[in-house]
Structures are given as structure tokens and as C-alpha cells.
């Protein structure tokens, strides 16, 4: 067992993957000498050199497009996008190129690359540096999507992503980098694509991922004090989506909340709610409730920013309402 931060676990995963496979290269803005905007790649250039920790100009579409071409021709690139918000710049290379190449070309070749990036609120970084854009990725056939909530998952999901044959978007959360936990990285990981029940419960199920897992767990603790026993499922990957684990839970509890930091409308929580409603209709005591980010750009004012995404209080309030009827 080790005490490790989310940030350090990501760095360990990159280091171990690079040591195990010469084809792995990291390419992005400030990933080399600077060590990454959030410090994830710090020190790796000393171990692996500038040929494998490739600093780029501020040219995001070029970075992702280069990774696509490299992945098609024998490398296993990890492209780093400093903020998920810059998906706006790279969406063509990601959605029209990386995601479709295997399919358009009749299965001749895949694009085994990982696009590492980070998103979410918590640092009052404004409307263009705080978004949760995972729905854009989840909505694009051909892309895999991982969103770890813990250091242990940050490590294992990144290692697993680097063994897959198709493009993976790996979205970290900026508010989790410094989060420390006791983890056993040598223990066999949960399989790629499998959700984990973080807290078992009888009365209701919260289905979530990334930072909202911790919001859900804290809410579940407070709800326990009120006599409500709530289950928390961490999806870990959104594509593939482990709906079986969700169905089993909701069929048992009869109540479901889909919790996401991203905007409510047409978001991940909406997809989860639709799936649960279809699959668990006969077992549901209540409508599936979405708790998600407000349908607004993220404001810079810290008070407004905090108010624009789900809080522990809102989760407690919602579950209390559901469970007190």
C-alpha cells in the first residue's frame, strides 16, 4: 500500500507504460521540460528524453492530428490537451479523423492513441477553462472514454488505455490532482469498462463518475445519518458503459439518480437516465432524477462557479426528497 496522489498515479502510469513499451511517446504543450501544466509529466523527460516527451508549439489540432498519424504508423502516442475546453479546436481531428478511420477504411487500421486532458470546475478558471465536455466524446461513435475518480483508477485505467486498439479520450479532473489516497497499485485492477460499487446501499442508487463520485460518497454519508442507505456506483469509463452493474443495482434499490458535473441537457446524466428508464422501468419507484451542471457557461466568480455544478447539499436534498415520500 502506498500514499499516492491522483497526479503521481498518472505519472507512474505513464512512466511504467513508457518503460514497458518503446512505442509510447507523449506529445503536447509543456509536457517535457515544464512537466505539464498540472505537473503530471514532471521529471519524465529526464528518464525518457525529449524524443519521447515531445514539447509542441501551441497548435492543438496539429498535436492531435500528429498523434493520429503516428498511431496509424507504429507509435502509441499519448497526446496531451492542456484543457478539455480545447476540444473546440481539435474536434475535427478527434471526431472526424481518429474516431472514424477504422470504420471508414473498412477495418484496415485502428488509431491506438490516448488523448489525455483535464476538465471540470473548482479553480475558478472561467468559461473557457472549466468545462465538462465528456458528452461531446461519448456522443461520438468510435471513441473510448475514461474518467477516473481515484488515484488507483487513474493509474490502472491509463495503463489499460495504453493497451487498447482504438482511440481513448482520458479526462482527468483538475480538482482531483492533489487528492491523496492509500492505494495498492500492485493489486490486480478491475477490468477496463467495468463499473465499481463504491458504497453499497439498499434505498437508492447514485450513478456517477470522476469528481462527482466523491460528492456522491459524502452525500451518502450524510444521508446515512438521516437513516437513508444509498448505493454509489463509479462508472470509471463512459465508453464502454457498464450498464449491467447499474441495472442490477437499480433493480434492487428501485430508485436512481444520475449525477454529472457536465451540463444537464443532452448530457451524460441524460443518457444514463434514459438507459435506466428503459432497462429498469418495472422496478422504478420514482422517475430517474438527473443532477447535473446548470445549462449555462461556467462563470468566473467563485460563488457563481460553485453554484453552477452539483453540490453535496443538492444531492442530499434530492435523495431526502425521494426517500421521504
Amino acid at each position: 500500500m502506498v500514499e499516492i496522489t491522483y497526479r503521481d498515479a498518472l505519472r507512474d502510469a505513464l512512466r511504467d507504460a513508457m518503460a514497458a513499451d518503446d512505442r509510447v511517446v507523449v506529445i503536447g504543450e509543456e509536457v517535457g521540460a515544464y512537466g505539464g501544466a498540472y505537473g503530471v509529466t514532471k521529471g519524465l523527460i529526464e528518464e525518457f528524453g525529449p524524443e519521447r516527451l515531445i514539447d509542441t508549439p501551441i497548435s492543438e489540432p496539429g498535436i492531435v492530428g500528429t498523434a493520429v498519424g503516428a498511431a496509424m504508423t507504429g507509435l502509441r502516442p499519448v497526446a496531451e490537451l492542456m484543457y478539455v475546453d480545447f476540444l473546440g479546436l481539435v474536434m475535427d481531428q478527434l471526431a472526424n479523423q481518429a474516431a472514424k478511420i477504422r470504420y471508414m477504411f473498412g477495418g484496415q487500421i485502428g488509431v491506438p492513441m490516448v488523448l489525455r486532458t483535464q476538465g471540470g470546475t473548482g479553480r475558478s478558471a472561467g468559461a473557457q477553462h472549466s468545462q465538462s465536455l465528456e458528452a461531446w466524446v461519448m456522443h461520438t461513435p468510435g471513441l473510448r472514454l475514461a474518467m477516473p475518480a481515484t488515484a488507483e483508477d487513474a493509474y490502472h485505467l491509463l495503463r489499460q488505455a495504453l493497451t487498447l486498439s482504438d482511440p481513448v479520450v482520458f479526462i482527468e479532473h483538475k480538482a482531483l490532482y492533489a487528492r491523496k489516497e492509500t492505494a495498492d497499485l500492485t493489486r490486480a485492477p478491475a477490468p477496463w469498462g467495468k463499473a465499481i460499487v463504491r458504497r453499497p446501499g439498499r434505498d437508492a442508487t447514485i450513478v456517477t463518475y470522476s469528481r462527482m463520485v466523491h460528492v456522491a460518497l459524502e452525500a451518502a454519508n450524510r444521508l446515512a445519518a438521516l437513516g437513508h442507505d444509498v448505493e454509489v456506483i463509479d462508472l470509471r469509463t463512459l465508453a464502454p458503459l457498464d450498464i449491467e452493474t447499474v441495472i442490477a443495482s437499480v433493480n434492487r434499490t428501485g430508485r436512481a439518480v444520475a449525477l454529472s458535473e457536465g451540463p444537464l441537457t443532452a448530457g451524460v446524466a441524460a443518457e444514463l437516465a434514459a438507459r435506466i428508464s428503459e432497462e429498469c422501468f418495472d422496478y422504478l419507484e420514482d422517475p430517474v432524477i438527473r443532477i447535473a451542471g446548470e445549462d449555462i457557461p461556467i462563470p468566473v466568480s467563485p460563488e457563481l462557479e460553485a453554484g453552477s455544478v452539483p453540490s453535496v447539499e443538492l444531492v442530499v436534498e434530492t435523495l431526502t426528497r425521494m426517500l421521504s415520500r
Binding site: 480545447f86 472561467g126 468566473v300 457563481l304
Partner: peptide, 21 residues
């Protein structure tokens, strides 16, 4: 208070906007 340092603007002065991209 919605924009902050990187998204300040003022149409009256012809400032069509600062940008974080």
C-alpha cells in the same frame, strides 16, 4: 463577474473581448 481577467470586454470601448483560447 462572469468573465474575469481572461474574458473582459466592453463594447462601448470597442473591446470585442479578451480570450482564453
Amino acid at each position: 463577474g462572469k468573465g474575469g481577467s481572461m474574458h473582459i470586454a466592453d463594447m462601448a470601448l470597442g473591446h470585442l473581448g479578451a480570450n482564453a483560447i
